[in-house]
Design a protein around this nucleic acid. Structure first.
Length: 500
RNA sequence: GGUGCGUUGGCCGAGUGGUUAGGCGCAGGUCUGCAAAACCUGUUACAGCGGUUCGAUUCCUCUACGCACCUCCA
């Protein structure tokens, strides 16, 4: 099996990936809080961890990928004082909170499906794990690292920090976390500002409530991920992913909860994707500068957005702009056209697009191509992907493959059957598999028979006009089709057409 | 104020102590009735000042600017 390196936020270095149990990977990723439509920012972790999931699978690991849905406990403004995001949306729309949850969960699934993000192996909901969360709180209380205050339970960070390091992930000390924090307003039930809620007492008007040993209430936001991670992946699992903005306090709290409740940090490799920015500023709910995926899909296809995300490394910020998206659209088109040509040259069928499909489970150990250039491309692609998921470098190598295919097509490069076979495999396994690109046009069930027949007829007429050197007619046909969004290209083997 | 990150050519965006990232755009060429596509060529950059080095965009100091987290945010 190929070696994979991942940047572990804990060490801030690239580490060789070694799973807890050989051949298997447990991966947990923080999913969305479903109180609104997913925006472009949500596409980043969606695509990033989809690629990681698919790469691990392709390398031969059996992967269990857990991505949660947060449907309770995520409060506004302040982790422990604001209104529950779901409850607020429900109040505003006069809906039962679970109606909000259901509606936006389905819409999230649709937004991800369009990006060809495969569904996770398990998608647990916070509200479905109240019992487990209560049990975890009991353990933390037993360990003496939490306290009850006015019907709520808080994590005792200072107590925890005596024995462990609170701030190990985000690289700060307990003192650091005090800097710049708001002063206690005296109303808080917390002993210290950095303490966080494990369980919150529900006020009488609060709809989302569950019974507990401490009275009716609801779980704190950070707890769900600790609990569901353990339930489905075990006391200690391999990879935990999420956005960099979740590093502190969310993931820091998770580590503390894990340590206090089960005696281990719980996670070996912490992986964090960076943010998408607009004009250099983070796209997010608070700034209100986000654009929802469904809105974006009206202008740019989901695959364009996927390609755009893949063109940057996941650890860096990625700036959104019309120019950048337009460039991604053209770059993607070039790759997909080459893919079509490649499959035609090889005389094999292009892989059928199917949502949730994973790449071949075992990556080829060595390259069987004969051409040095093809071998280099092949090596570069796998080296890049296994070097901390370097998709931009992998795409650069793919771009070289595209050049080879095009050059072969026009006869300026020679490739053997072994070379072609290697390229086909590379496109199957990596371009369409791991990177998860797909040809949206041809995946829409292809063109109808009627359109195919009509186009054939029209192009025959045009060919006849061309043969008679009647350029007026042939250009008129081409221009008319162009106006309809159909682009005709003359090649030495006759005319080709594509729908824009 | 604390912590951390960044500053690359017209745009997006990789990477490296000395050799082409890649995409998009632009210019020229080949091909073509024309166009499109494709191919070839060109467009050669690494914020500033010092330092280390035979040599730094790449390591170190400082400066400027920007960003993120420290409230919820993927």
């Amino acid at each position: 099996m190929r070696e994979l390196r991942l940047t572990n936020t804990l060490s801030r270095t690239k580490e060789l990936f070694v799973p807890v149990s050989e051949g298997r990977v447990g991966m947990y990723v923080c999913g969305p809080t479903v109180y609104g439509d997913a925006h472009l920012g949500h596409a980043r972790p969606g695509v990033t961890y989809d690629v990681l999931f698919k790469l691990l699978t392709h390398l031969g690991y059996k992967v269990r990928y857990v991505r949660n849905i947060t449907d309770v406990g995520h409060l506004e403004h302040d982790a422990d004082e604001g209104e529950d995001k779901i409850a607020k949306k429900a109040r505003l729309e006069q809906l039962e909170p679970m109606e909000v949850v259901q509606a936006y969960t389905l819409r999230y699934h649709e937004a991800m499906r369009m990006l060809n993000v495969a569904p996770p192996s398990i998608e647990p909901r916070a509200s479905g794990h109240i019992i487990e969360q209560i049990e975890a709180i009991k353990k933390i209380l037993d360990a003496g690292m939490a306290y009850e205050s006015n019907g709520s339970i808080y994590f005792d960070v200072a107590k925890y920090n005596e024995k462990y390091h609170y701030g190990i992930l985000s690289g700060r000390t307990l003192e650091d976390t005090l800097e710049g924090t708001r002063s206690l307003d005296g109303q808080s039930d917390k002993r210290a500002p950095y303490d966080f809620a494990l369980w919150k007492k529900a006020e009488p008007q609060h709809i989302m409530r569950w019974p507990s040993p401490w009275g009716d209430g609801f779980p704190g936001w950070h707890l769900e991920c600790s609990v569901m991670g353990e339930k489905y992946l075990g006391r200690e699992f391999d990879i935990h992913g999420g956005g960099m903005d979740l590093m502190f306090p969310h993931h820091e709290c998770e580590i503390a909860q894990n340590q206090a409740s089960r005696g281990t940090r719980g996670v070996r490799y912490w992986v964090h994707n960076n943010m998408i920015t607009i004009d250099g500023k983070k796209m997010g709910k608070s700034l209100g500068n986000f654009i929802t995926l469904f809105d974006l899909y009206r202008k740019y296809s989901p695959m364009t957005i996927r390609f755009f995300i893949l063109q940057a490394h996941y650890r860096g910020t990625l700036d959104f702009s019309d120019d950048a998206l337009a460039a991604a659209r053209k770059g993607l088109k070039r790759v997909l056209q080459a893919a079509k040509d490649l499959y035609a040259i090889a005389g094999v069928k292009a892989p059928e697009y199917s949502y949730g499909a994973l790449p071949a489970t075992v990556a080829p150990e060595s390259c069987t191509a004969e051409s040095k250039e093809v071998r280099t491309v092949w090596e570069n692609v796998y080296d890049a992907l296994c070097d901390d998921l370097n998709t931009p470098v992998a795409l650069a190598a793919i771009s070289e493959a595209v050049r080879l295919i095009n050059s072969y097509k026009e006869g300026s490069v020679k490739l053997t059957k072994a070379d072609i076979d290697t390229l086909v495999q590379l496109f199957n396994d990596v371009v369409f598999g791991v990177l998860g690109l797909c040809d949206e046009e041809s995946s829409q069930g292809g063109q109808s028979k009627v359109v195919e027949g009509l186009m054939q007829m029209v192009l025959e007429q045009r060919a006849a006009a061309k043969a008679a050197k009647d350029w007026a007619v042939s250009d008129h046909i081409r221009d008319s089709l162009k106006a309809l969004g159909i682009v005709v290209k003359d090649t030495k083997d006759g005319a080709e057409w594509t729908m824009e």
